[in-house]
Amino acid sequence: MFQYILKRLLSIVGMLVLISISVFALFFAVPADPARLTCGKNCTPAIIEANRHALGYDKPIVTQYLDFMKGLVSERDFPDDPVIAKNSPQSITHCPAPCLGYSVTQGQLVSKMIKDAFPITASIAVGAFVLWIVGGVGIGVLSALKRGTLLERGLVSASLVAYSLPTFFIGLLLLNIVSIKYGLAPAAGYTPFLDDPVAWAQGMILPWITLAMVFAALYVRLTRANMLETLSEDYIRTARAKGVPEWAVIARHAMRAALTPIVTIAGLDLGGVLAGAAITETVFNLNGIGKTGVYAIQQLDLPVIVAVVLLSAFVIVLFNFVVDLLYAFLDPRVTLR
C-alpha cells in the first residue's frame, strides 16, 4: 500500500515533468516572436528587447526551462539581471516561490493570476458537481427502477437531448434569453463566498446549471445503465431469495455495486472541471482558470499558457490518483500494486 502510493507519486512527478517539457517545447517553439507579442501597437525595438530580456526569452530554451523549474521551488526576479537590480531596483518584479512566471501582457505575476482565478473555477466546479451528481445519479436510479414506463422513456429522452446540446449553446441561451431578456435568473458574476454567500450562490446559478447540464445528462445514462446491469446480476436474485425487502435490495445491494464505478468517473470529471471550465467561464465572463487560459492563448501570453496547462494537468493527474485510491477502498476486489 505504502509502496504503491510512493510509486504513484513518483510517476505523477515524472508525468508532470514530461508534460512540462512538452509544453515548453511546443509553446516556446512558436513561430512568432513571443517578445514581439508582449507589447501593443506603439512598440519600439527597445521595448521588445527589454521585454525579451525581462522574460528571459533571450536565453536558450533549455535554460529557460530550468529557470522555470527552479522557480517552482525558489524565488525568481524579472528581469533576472544583477545590473538592473543594482541600478533600478524598482523595475524588478520579485516572484516568490512557487513562481510560475511573469505576464508582461497583464503586468502581473502568473501565480497571482492563478490565485485569483482558482476560487472562481472552484466555485463553479463544486456547485455544478453537486448539481449534476444529485440530479444525474438520482434521475438515473429512478429511470432504472421505472424501467419500461413512460416516465423512464421521458427521462432517458430528455437526458439525451440535454446531452446533445453544446455547453456554450446552453450557456448562451440561459444568459441571453433567461437572464438578459426575461430577467428570470440573477446575472452571473463572482462574489467571494466569505464576503456574501447569498450573492455568491446567485451569481453562480447560471454557470452551475450550464456546466451541470451535460454532465447530469451523461450521469443519468451511466447510472441507468449500471443500475440495469446490476439489477440483472445473480447476487441481486440471491438477496431477493433471502427475503431481503425490496428497498434494501435496491439501496444496499444494487446501488452499492452500481454506483461504485460512478464514484470513479465523478472523481475524474470533478478533476477535469477543476482544471478549468473554459467554455462556461467564457460564456459568463468569469475569470477562472479556463478563461484565463483562453485569454492567454488569444494573447499568446506564453508564461500564463504554460502555467495554466501545467496546473490543469497537475489537477487531472492528482485526481486520477485519488480516484484510484478511493476505488481500491470501495471495491474489496481491487488491490493496489
Partner: peptide, 9 residues
C-alpha cells in the same frame, strides 16, 4: 460534448 470531457461505458 461541447468541451468538457467525460467517459462513457
Amino acid at each position: 460534448s461541447a468541451g468538457e470531457f467525460a467517459a462513457e461505458p
